[in-house]
Amino acid sequence: MDAERPRGEGADILDERSRDRIQSIERGVEVLRAFNSRQGPLSVADIAARVDLARPVVRRILLTFAHLGYAESAGGLWSLTPRILELGSGYFASSSLPEISYGYMVDLVERTGETCSIGVLDGMDVIHVARVEDRRPLPDSVRIGNRLPAHATAIGKVLLARLSDAELDALLANAPLEVHTPATVTDAERLRARLADVRANQYDISMEELHPGQVAAAVPIVIDGRAVGGLAVSSTTVRETEESLRDVIIPVLFATAADIASAYRNANPQLFRAGAR
Rank of each mutant, 00 (worst) to 15 (best):
N146A: 13
H128A: 03
P139M: 10
G156N: 03
A74W: 09
D107H: 09
G76R: 05
L148C: 02
H151I: 05
R162W: 07
L148S: 05
E72N: 06
G145P: 03
L97S: 11
V106A: 04
L68C: 09
D122L: 09
D107T: 12
A152I: 02
L77E: 11
L68G: 07
E72G: 00
T81Y: 08
E99R: 15
G113F: 13
Y91E: 10
T81R: 05
R131I: 06
D122Y: 08
Y102W: 13
I144F: 12
A71C: 02
Y70D: 04
Y102Q: 12
L80E: 07
G103Q: 08
L97D: 06
L68Y: 13
S89K: 10
I100P: 00
R111S: 13
S89F: 02
F92R: 13
T153L: 10
V158L: 08
E114L: 12
Y70I: 03
F92M: 07
A93H: 14
P137C: 13
F92T: 09
L138C: 15
H128R: 05
G76E: 06
L77M: 10
L77G: 04
D140I: 09
L148V: 08
A161M: 01
I144N: 02
L87P: 00
S79A: 13
V142M: 04
L160Q: 08
V132W: 09
E110K: 13
R147F: 11
Y102S: 08
Y91C: 01
P98C: 15
G88F: 06
A154I: 01
G88W: 06
P82R: 12
H67V: 13
T112C: 12
A93V: 07
S117A: 11
S95R: 15
V142S: 00
L108K: 01
H67L: 15
A130N: 13
I118V: 05
H128Q: 03
L159S: 01
A150Q: 02
V142I: 14
H151W: 11
R162K: 14
P149Y: 09
R135T: 11
A152T: 05
I127L: 08
A71Q: 04
A74K: 10
R111Q: 14
G119A: 10
V109N: 01
L121C: 01
D122M: 08
